[in-house]
Design a protein around this nucleic acid. Structure first.
Lengths: 341, 341
DNA sequence: GTGAAAGCGCTAACAT
DNA sequence: ATGTTAGCGCTTTCAC
């Protein structure tokens, strides 16, 4: 008796153990075609007893189909993306498709690498955050021949199709709401934006709508890294010191807005009378703060579900019609930090 | 001229375009063996011009090696796991290994499915949260023949090896610290625990250490779902109403502890004099709250890096010695919500 | 330094 | 209802 290397099991092993041809074993394991109940039983028993796990690599190569959907996002630490992911998963779970996540850290070069890696597994579709990509990335996506859904943003031209919101519009609408309530001395705080195109677009829309009414942001500050809550606090304190006559603070996300809120409350400032504030995103996490922050929903889960539906649809029926752009419409939540007439 | 189906490119296409054999093209693309600079140049040029992306499926099947590491975690919405992920990524980025994430939603059956799916891609290793798995999952892992690192927890017997902290010990230590400061009327709030073994173990360690000093938790409450911050607030309010003489609140995570903190501050209660409180995890997110919450670091990033190092090591040198259990030691942060003598 | 042949473990397509 | 044959696109191995 010789000691065998622990070799992974193959179809052949199951075939021999059950006395059924490899082909029939394969059919049973995939619920394909007609197999008699007796044979099916035998095969399943043998497979289970051996602890056989199919080799998808071989299967994929033979069948030229891979049931993976590549999902490429900038980060997992920003709660926005896990929420999009859960929208995607909830739809794909009902199909035989599986999401595979790649993270780019907001770096175009890393996006390129991640994309290359993922495409080399020949997935059935790609869901990728944003409309801004390197030329090489765009070329890869275009020539991949698989459905590509760019998510989160609709301000631009998609490679294949896009699902998201217009961040420029979101910025404009928040600006209008703020002006409408009579605020005029407005400050802005946000992430450093060369990296974050969506935050940049919101800011652009925001200042553009203000300008239309002859208003300019009187102060602004950008951060990167660190605890968003703490940063929101710090930046707010600093800005109020610089510009005491500020009457509104617009934040590029709800987490720094929460920091700002806590700072204003500490200082005993009347919200939203003396100073109003607003963030962006509507992160559920923040329910439970002393005041509900004015914000705009970014439709995260909905973006995920819609994107996944598009992929699933096009995998099933490759010739189904293509909706180029699906623009969802975020709505303002006034909460307790933005006056309403 | 006929219209060709957009067929994915193969090595053969690059071979023909460059006038070099498929074999040599393969060598160039993988930087293997000796290839003259002239040939290398030609090949790279052709590959780039065509936009060739290698087919890893075929490669993996032929070479019997897959550079993927399966990472199986309960959730992405709990910031703990993205932090572990980033520890894992930071290590694997320096190798040619790639993490692939699977999410179980704390459900053993889903863990089983996810594991089966992932193992069927024949990854080079598995990193999986927790020590509790279904028998089928354990069997799959054992017979996979690849390195398996169970993370987060060391209270139990690993299948192969484990990296984490002892949650029982963490609970005990927090209990001791609380008692030492003279608190005696202690309440506990946490997640519903049949799902979350680590929270359960902390609670068990906690009550055990209290019992040793003749102290019992005088009230407890469990939640599931919803905004943790809001839940922490609600549960705290309810519990204080039920048991006004409470002088310490122990929470199973920092987020609900933060909700509790905000509630106590609202009620104008003296912290940590009249009531002290503590959470668990040390989520960076929470810097910036009005008071720093007493907590314990769960060593999340470190767990990720160590686990990834073990996998990387064992992939490189399959016969390297195995450390069964790596137990990291979390430390208490007193913050502003737990008296210190 | 380069190429030819064989085969990785499965499934499509065609028998029977 | 079941079996046989021929690859899928690469890499391993060996020959030159």
């Amino acid at each position: 008796m010789s000691i065998d290397e622990p070799r992974p099991l193959t179809l052949r092993d199951v075939s021999e153990a059950s006395g059924v041809s490899e082909m029939t074993v394969s059919r049973v394991l995939r619920n394909r075609g007609d197999v008699s109940d007796a044979t099916r039983e035998k095969v399943l028993e043998a497979a289970k007893a051996l602890g056989y796990v199919p080799n998808k690599i071989a299967g994929a190569l033979a069948s030229q189909r891979v049931n993976l959907v590549a999902v490429v996002i900038p980060s997992l630490r920003n709660m926005v993306f896990p929420e999009v992911m859960s929208g995607i998963s909830s739809v794909l779970e009902q199909t035989d498709l599986q999401p595979v996540v790649g993270v780019t850290d907001y770096l175009p070069e890393k996006e390129e690498r991640v994309l290359y890696e993922m495409l080399s597994w020949r997935p059935s579709g790609v869901i990728i955050a944003g409309l801004e990509h390197s030329d090489a990335s765009k070329a890869m996506l275009r020539s991949s021949g698989i459905p590509v859904v760019e998510i989160m943003d609709t301000d631009g031209t998609p490679i294949d199709c896009a699902v998201g919101i217009s961040h420029r519009r979101a910025g404009r609408e928040m600006a209008r709401a703020i002006l409408k309530q009579g605020y005029r001395n407005i400050g802005f705080m946000g992430t450093k934006m060369p990296l974050d195109h969506r935050a940049r677009k919101r800011f652009e829309g925001f200042t553009e709508a203000l300008a239309k009414e002859g208003v300019e942001v009187i102060d602004q500050e950008f951060y990167s890294g660190g605890s968003a809550l703490a940063k929101g606090r710090e930046m707010t304190r600093a800005m109020l010191k610089r510009e005491p006559e500020l009457d509104f603070l617009y934040y590029s996300n709800d987490m720094i807005a929460a920091g700002g809120l806590l700072e204003l409350l500490d200082q005993g400032i009347d919200i939203p009378g003396r100073i109003g504030l607003a963030g962006f995103n509507g992160v559920e996490l923040l329910d439970g703060l002393p005041r509900a922050i004015a914000t705009m929903d970014a439709c995260r889960t909905e973006i995920g579900t819609k994107a996944a539906q598009i992929i699933a649809q096009r995998v099933e029926e490759p010739d189904s019609p293509i909706e180029k752009v699906v623009e969802l419409t975020p709505r303002i939540t006034y909460g307790d930090t933005l006056k309403r007439r």
